[in-house]
Write a protein that binds this DNA or RNA. Structure first.
Lengths: 159, 159
DNA sequence: TATAATACCTAGTAACTTAGTAGGTAATTA
DNA sequence: TAATTACCTACTAAGTTACTAGGTATTATA
């Protein structure tokens, strides 16, 4: 499991699709403008999303992309796994003496953490964000805590 | 919030410190051997961890690193934020017409997701993993599901 | 039928990040 | 005094990110 700007681009683009679902297909050109991402890079991302069947393309004028399945069937984890290369999880390539040596235990702890993270992100769907009447609520709610959030995401203060 | 191999190295190294807490300071040389990470790269990581006061160094023979505070006061989020550069979250650099234009809403949805992720990772501490009698339990529990996990973390199957 | 709009594809590349090497100095223990 | 460790700086190879440039295939519409 990896979380980077690439994954963020994919998730926000999928949110765009979900939010505008009822207005027909959304063009990559539009998303490019809204999100400030180059069209060609979006094409690369959507190629992966399409192969994972998370979106489907519609060619020709009036075309674009639609969600490949209902928004409540698309989790954040699915999106991230579709576009990001997976992390190689262990350094002790399954050598058994490492396990017996008890040092590899931390690898298992890490896998446990990764699994919890996966479950968490797999439990959040696009529908959780864009259920129409609630979008504004989330938005407002977000406003009220946005200053706290930006503080939290600052780099840790250095001594 | 960013999650990469760099963050994983930091988290597993911190787990190593926590697990071996009672045996005195742990040397980077040891961690380097256990985790297969170069000594100098570990030094770079621990420089950041030290500045964030998550570890403290002990010089001289018999020295090494200790946790900077109790394991139940160190969250996974703190570790990751200490070593990873933070992601620049919005592309519409606060331009208000973007907000009014309703397109920037997805940025708020993303921030909401980031915040949930932060809360999740901030709610998990090192102590959750290494409370002594439980380490083996987690390990065993992990074994039973490890095949499922490795399946889940494979790249998404392509059509 | 012609044109435009779109998806869809390949190749190349600049900038950045990751992870490493090399070569030190400072503090501390034995 | 010697060995061991943290701690620091500079440099670098490999990989990833995000972009540019150039196409082809499909389809709606004028």
């Amino acid at each position: 499991m990896k979380l980077s700007t690439k994954g963020r681009y994919a998730v926000t683009a999928m949110m765009d699709l979900a939010v505008n679902d009822r207005d027909g297909p959304v063009t990559l050109s539009d998303i490019s403008g809204w999100q400030g991402i180059s069209l060609s890079y979006l094409e690369q991302l959507f190629s992966k999303l399409r192969k994972a069947r998370l979106v489907e393309g519609v060619r020709g004028p009036g075309g674009g992309y639609r969600l490949g399945k209902p928004a409540d069937k698309i989790s954040i984890a699915q999106i991230i796994l579709a576009v990001d290369e997976s992390i190689d999880s262990t350094q002790c390539k399954g050598s058994e003496d490492c396990l017996a040596g008890d040092r590899c235990m931390t690898h298992k702890l890490w896998e446990d953490l990764s699994f919890r993270l996966y479950e968490f992100l797999n439990g959040i769907t696009l529908a959780d964000f864009i259920k129409r009447p609630e979008v504004r609520r989330i938005s407002v709610q977000q406003n009220s805590t946005s200053s706290q959030i930006s503080r939290m995401f600052q780099p840790v203060a250095h001594a």
